[in-house]
């Protein structure tokens, strides 16, 4: 049996080494080669992250990864982890997600088996020709955001949120269509933004992106006992931890390169400077949690 893993990112992306290869190895070894996992990279089985969940449910692929933020209406509670201040920046996202999964999040993943849930590195501000050290610096600037949560956060800070496909961000920064963007540091290398970004701001808790890897439920249930045991041994927290750590390492590398570059200024805000941002953003987080009735999910993520 050959299981198909749909990867919409390029084959060199962090996901391959951090998650796809370890999963493939575990399944291959656990079944002595009777079951294998084959990856289809670069969107060969359909482009982009937005439709991944549906593709897995419809059986186009058996397994695949995506971002809940691209179809935010399906994942109101999972996305609580993306909120500014939901979780201290130094705490791992995967552990928080799995703490809340059984009790609070599972119903957001119907018809699939959750293989991995993890968070990205912390969101930071990346700007062209502007320095941001206080919320006032953002006033009136056009900031590219990925979804509605980040859009509300930027509005709370006085910026103008702009929706733009990730592939157009490079050009947008270059021409001044946008002044900056809020995302994890890995986009500096993944989308070559380090070539056009001139300043980076770290420190404020701007939340983080979340990710899932799911498997078609009937396919999972139909696995041989051997294959299921091999997959069960790695799925869940183990593979999620491994993936998130690789993510954070990629981001750290990109951020180190930015620090080393003479073209990019890195503003590491201290606790006092960050507090001004965090205070302004607290209402966004509170309002979202109240709107989706997510107090229990947030408490579970925080381990309270």
């Amino acid at each position: 049996q050959e299981l198909k893993y749909a990867n919409w990112a390029p084959p060199f992306h962090t996901i391959t080494e951090a998650q796809i290869e370890p999963l493939a190895k575990a399944i291959d070894e656990g079944t002595s080669g009777a079951v294998t996992l084959r990856a289809f990279h670069g969107g060969e089985l359909g482009a982009g992250p937005a439709d991944q969940y549906v593709r897995i449910v419809q059986g186009t692929a058996d397994m695949g990864w995506g971002l809940p933020g691209y179809t935010s209406s399906q994942f109101p509670k999972t996305l609580i982890l993306e909120l500014p201040g939901a979780l201290p920046l130094d705490q791992p996202g995967y552990a928080a997600l799995w703490r809340a999964y059984e009790g609070e999040l599972k119903s957001e993943f119907p018809m699939t088996e959750a293989i991995a849930l993890w968070g990205a590195e912390p969101n930071i501000l990346m700007m062209k020709d502007k320095q941001v050290t206080s919320p006032g610096d953002l006033k009136g600037l056009k900031i590219r955001v990925a979804g509605s949560i980040a859009a509300e956060a930027m509005e709370a800070l006085g910026a103008t949120p702009v929706q733009l496909p990730m592939t157009q961000v490079y050009n947008g920064l270059q021409t001044g269509l946008i002044d900056g963007l809020v995302s994890g540091a890995s986009v500096l290398s993944d989308f070559k933004l380090s070539e056009v970004v001139s300043s980076v701001t770290t420190g404020p808790n701007l939340g983080r992106l979340t990710f899932y890897t799911v498997m078609n439920k009937p396919v999972y249930d139909g696995l041989s006992g051997e294959a299921k045991a091999a997959l069960d041994a790695v799925k869940g927290e183990a593979i999620s931890k491994q993936t998130e750590e690789a993510w954070v390492a990629t981001a750290a590398e990109a951020l180190d390169a930015a620090r080393a570059s003479s073209e990019i200024t890195v503003n590491d805000l201290d606790a006092a400077q960050s507090k001004a941002f965090d205070d302004a953003l607290a209402q966004v987080t509170d309002a979202y949690v109240a709107e989706v009735g997510g107090a229990a999910a947030l408490a579970a993520m925080r381990g309270e």
Partner: peptide, 23 residues
Amino acid sequence: LNGLQAATGLLSSETFALASNSE
């Protein structure tokens, strides 16, 4: 190569994805 389910799945998801592609 991949079964009827995959073919119908791709037909619907590619059709809608391209017809609503922002670029």
